[in-house]
Every structure is written in C-alpha cells, then in structure tokens.
Design a protein around this nucleic acid. Structure first.
Lengths: 219, 219
DNA sequence: ATATGTGAACATTTTCACAGCT
DNA sequence: AGCTGTGAAAATGTTCACATAT
C-alpha cells in the first residue's frame, strides 16, 4: 500500500462522515456514484480512493455501508482512541475543548497546558489546566499521541520544538505561522486567515475567473 | 491572468504573512530562495506563483519586501476591508469573534446571528447578537461580503441556502458537513475533524509510509 | 442489468534548468 | 556574479472507459 495523497486521506474522512450519517438513517447499501454526489466528487474518484486500500464493494451492487465504515475506520486508524493534549487555553483552545465532536470521533483531550499562572490549576470543560513548565512531564505521563497547538504565533515554534523533543509525532497547529518539524512528525495546519484570504481573492477576482467553474468548492 | 490554483492562492497568503513579519524586522529585500525556505516550499515554486500575476522581482537582487507586500495585498484583494457576518454564536463562533487577528488582516465581523432567543439582544465581544429571523435583512443592511457559518451540521445547509439567496458570494464553513453552493459562490471549509483524522492516519501508518518524506508538512 | 476495480488517457501541479537582466 | 522569469520535463492527481464480477 503506497502512494496515498493527502487529498485522498481528506476524502476518506469525508466519506466516513457521510456514511455514518447514512447508517443512522438506516441506509444499508450504496453505490460509488451516490457517495460521490453527496461528497462533491466523482464516482471514479471514490473507487480510485478506495482501491488504494483494498476491494470493498460488490460488483453490480455497490458498497455495504456498515462494511465500508469499518474499513474506513481501520484505514484512518480510528479503531482506537487517541490521547490529545491542548497547549494554549486561550479563546480558540477553550472553544476546541468544548467541541464535543472530537470526542465522538475518537479524540480525547486529556490534558491542557497554559503559560498564564492565573489559569493554571483551574478547570476548563472539566480538564485541569497545567503549567507550561509541566509540559514535557505531562505529555509523557498522560501518554499523549497528538498535540493541538493553540498559542500565539510567536510562541508556537518553541512549543512545537519541545513537544517534538518529548516524542510526540502528530501536531495540529492553529497558530497562523509556518512551523518546522523533523521528518517523521506529522503536522497539519488549520489557518483561518488563509481561508479568509482565499475568499477575499475569489471576491476580488470574480467576473472572468480562473479555473473551470467559479466554485472552488473546497473540501 | 488565468489558471490560478487554490494551492497557489494559499501560498500567496503565506508569503504575505511572512513578508509582513520580515518588514517589521526591518528586512528590505529578499530572494525567492529565502522566502521559500521560510514558507516550506521551493524557490522555483515561489517564482512560478508570483509570475502568474506579473513580474515583481529584480534580477540579481531579489524582491523588495515592501513592494511584494503591496503586490500581494492587491492580488488577494486586501486593499479594502471586508464586512463579515457570523452565523451561530456558539463556542466556535464566539471564539472566532474574539480572534482579533481577523480584524488586523482586514476582515471585520460586523454582525452576528443566532437562533437562540436567550442570546439575541446580548453582545459578544461588542457585537450585537441578532435573531435568526433577521438574517436576510441584516445581510442586506450591513452590506455583508462574507458569511462565516458556525452552526451545527444539521442546520448548515439551510443557513447557506438563505445566505446565498440573499446574494452573499463568499462563505467560510466551520460545520463538519459538505455544503452545496451554486457556481459563482466561493466556499471554503475549515474542518478540524478531517485534519485530526489525517493525523490519525499518519500515526496509524507510520513505519513504511507512502509518499516521499514522512512529513506531510501541511500548509 | 448494474456497478465495481483498474489500466490508460488526460489534466494539473511541481520541479528543472537556463537564458536574460541588473 | 547573482537571481529572476519561464518554457520544457517530470511527477502527481483525476477522469475515462471497459473488462469483469454478481
């Protein structure tokens, strides 16, 4: 199993979410075409994406919703739960903490760190805020798999360096800066400013537009 | 000027942010190589991206930081300010409201709408929360350019339909669902669950990995 | 009859490499 | 001498189209 692009992985997430909804609605079976339409892609794309990991459909019939969900969860590593730490208990950080959806998907925020002595020792959405100085020790003792960085841009690289040195291999960054991590560490960025600026670009350049349609339908 | 990919626009945002920092530090001039390194891309990529819009550098010398900033701001449509409305004053919505960074970049959240009667009439970070029923009227009277959707997944498509019908042509979606918009409307998604699942995938599949390095350095 | 899985065609994006300014 | 701007090449990602299975 090689050659899996980031866009494929992103789509798998989308497929999974869709399928979970359909399962709730009692749908049992589904074609690549039906799934594609609901995810804003093409049937061929769906089949290609899935074919990278095995063969999950039945010819002439389509995919079993339940089986495909199981397969996707396995591919995405969602059969286990992941232990997540949040660094930075500011506005965004706390909002994420309260975002119950993460928990539902298998991600438990079990530790929070902040530099502000006024917050340390308090609880946010039930989780104890620990001192920044306890970061390395806490990551270790809580067996953290993934760190969410929600500190101001200036502090982000320093936090990441410490987190990586402590052995964490997956980081989700909300700070609006480019972070450097060594090979072997997975880094994903959520940069709202970039998305807003893409909208600004689209608005400023509407009229004769660039690519095919005019709808950069995003993912 | 044709054929500008989403990834190019994303990188332009990054370049701009970097350049702004450098300008503050007093840097006057810079090569494509230097910019590339700080943005995690290549010099050729930087030059290609910029060349789609004109010629901004001086051969043998590099780019003037100030001039390139001006050019990028113009390209991205950031020479004006944009009027933004937030729909959904829940946790994420309010966190975004408080996120001063948007304002700095030229995006003013000037209206907030929520369905919860308990919130209507109150203020959040100084902005009055309006009733959901006033949505169309408010978008119009406040001359809203961009709408941020921060409502639960179930309500998101309905909100988008109303917003589009009201003439808004740019939407930033935080709800974890796939939204449909007609051609001519720009839609960007911020989906934290997708990013977390990409990390889960990376962790679950470390060892012999797919692509080149192991660092899907994200953007 | 229907819908998958996939090699081959196509399209897009990235990288290379170098001519041409300064 | 140094660094941009850009065609051409390489790599990557998407779509087509069809043989194959139920």
């Amino acid at each position: 199993m090689r050659k899996v692009s980031e866009s494929t992985v992103g789509r798998l997430s989308l497929y999974l979410r869709l399928l979970s909804e359909l399962e709730t609605d009692g749908v049992q079976t589904l074609s690549s075409e039906a799934l594609a339409q609901r995810c804003g892609t093409t049937a061929a794309q769906v089949r290609k994406d899935l074919s990278l990991f095995g063969t999950f459909g039945k010819r002439g019939l389509g995919y079993s919703v339940a089986e495909l969900i199981a397969a996707l969860r396995s591919i995405l590593g969602l059969e286990r739960r992941w232990r997540v730490a949040l660094v930075g208990a500011g506005r965004i950080g706390v909002a994420l903490l309260g975002y119950q959806d993460f928990r539902t998907q298998g991600f438990d925020i079990v530790a929070v760190f902040d530099r502000d002595a006024g917050k340390v020792g308090q609880r946010r959405h039930g989780v104890l805020v620990r001192a920044d100085a306890e970061l390395e020790q806490g990551l270790e003792s809580e067996s953290i798999d993934i760190v969410i960085v929600a500190v101001p841009g200036e502090s982000a690289q320093a936090v990441v360096d410490r987190v990586v040195a402590a052995g964490v291999r997956a980081i989700l960054n909300f700070a609006p800066v480019k972070l450097n991590v060594p090979a072997g560490v997975a880094l994903k960025n959520v940069n709202m400013a970039v998305e807003l600026e893409a909208l600004s670009y689209a608005l400023a350049n509407s009229g004769r537009r660039s690519r095919r349609g005019a709808t950069p339908a995003g993912r």
